[in-house]
Design a protein around this nucleic acid. Structure first.
Lengths: 208, 208
DNA sequence: TAGATTGTTAATCGATTAACAATC
DNA sequence: TAGATTGTTAATCGATTAACAATC
């Protein structure tokens, strides 16, 4: 039960969580079932039950899952019972948008540090956070014990910034730069590249 | 050979393409191998060769792949030999950042239409594109033959905007709203939710 | 030629699904 | 009780990898 859980399973848990939040907040739902949840997400009910069974027994035969309880269990599993300190590197248009994204605060993430190498950006305040000079990045992050970083810098800078972040103790990176990063095995990386995502879809579209 | 190709394979092609662009543009590389490409991407060379073999024989024994040639083949496969018209719905911070993202233009995507329901946003010009009123969305998109949309609206609006986009002829949606969308089977959807991505990583982090 | 690397096959590995006893 | 739904098992399905003949 506490064996090695496939990463693909871990990847679905936040999706379940998001749907459960919606059920509670938008629809005042008290209970749900693997069938209902699966229908919303386009996932089979068997898969949802299988995924959850890696971590324990959270439902009741005949009635399904208590939404609040399942939320709290998933939050526990995903280590969301604390507020994670997050550094945002890059204060361009995207960094600016991310700095103002209110869902981070609502979901256990506190973006409390911003960095940029452009002197024009340094000193600007974005959603209450002062943009600090790039050179102060390692010291500030190590000092504050920041372990998660969001990368919103150009591709050319991404790997060297990554190396410095990792050296300063960062263990998880959400990378918006269009480049594959090289990191030690104990550092997590997630990628977000809109061009890659669009290109994946055009394959299926009829060309003009 | 022209059989049904697994979507997971399609999903890797843009990643290969991105690395190949980098080899040509940043390193003036003329040829590469499945081994070299795999090493950069953290993917086995066998998998890269297998993926490519779905579409043809692009390499030469002993020497590997001609980078320019492989790029052009992948562009062809992914239907990137045309410029795709893209509509951007939502002119908030994120919409603003996406409107200014220069990589779309460089990679076969032209963001030529923006929409927002907020009268304060309507009429603003973002990177040369005038934000149009939400009500004009269907007619404008259908008229222009736009088939790809990027969704940067609040979760509460996302499904209804999606329904309208689909009715207007959109066949691919890149969704930044934190909600699972329901679409007909011939409509592609890709998701981008930073909170989901961060939550996937915190599972692996030691809590404080 | 010798070395390198492809494309492909077969084996392995892993993930999903169908089915159902258990039980609320 | 009857109906619903869980957790789990076994079967199925699909993806990855190892290995190698072919050949540049």
């Amino acid at each position: 039960m506490a064996d090695e859980i496939p990463d693909i399973v871990i990847g679905r848990l936040p999706i379940y969580l998001r749907a459960l939040y919606n059920m509670v907040e938008e629809e005042d739902k008290v209970t749900t079932s693997s069938h209902e949840l699966g229908e919303r997400l386009g996932i089979s009910s068997a898969q949802i039950r299988k995924d959850l069974s890696h971590f324990g027994e959270f439902g009741k035969q005949g009635t399904g899952y208590h939404v609040d309880f399942l939320i709290s269990q998933l939050e526990q599993i995903l280590n969301l019972e604390q507020v994670w300190r997050v550094a945002l590197v890059g204060a361009g248009f995207l960094g600016h948008a991310l700095a103002h994204y209110h869902r981070f605060q609502r979901h256990s993430f506190h973006i409390g540090w911003m960095f940029d190498s452009d002197p024009d950006k340094v000193g600007q305040v974005m959603n209450g956070v002062v943009v600090q000079p790039d050179e102060e990045m390692e010291a500030t992050i190590a000092e504050a014990g920041v372990r998660i970083a969001i990368l919103a810098v150009p591709a050319a800078a991404a790997q060297s910034v990554t190396d410095r972040l990792v050296a300063a103790g960062v263990k998880a990176i959400l990378n918006y730069a269009p480049i594959s990063l090289s990191v030690p095995p104990d550092v997590q990386v997630q990628y977000s590249d809109p061009v890659v995502q669009l290109q994946r879809m055009t394959y299926y579209l009829r060309p003009e």
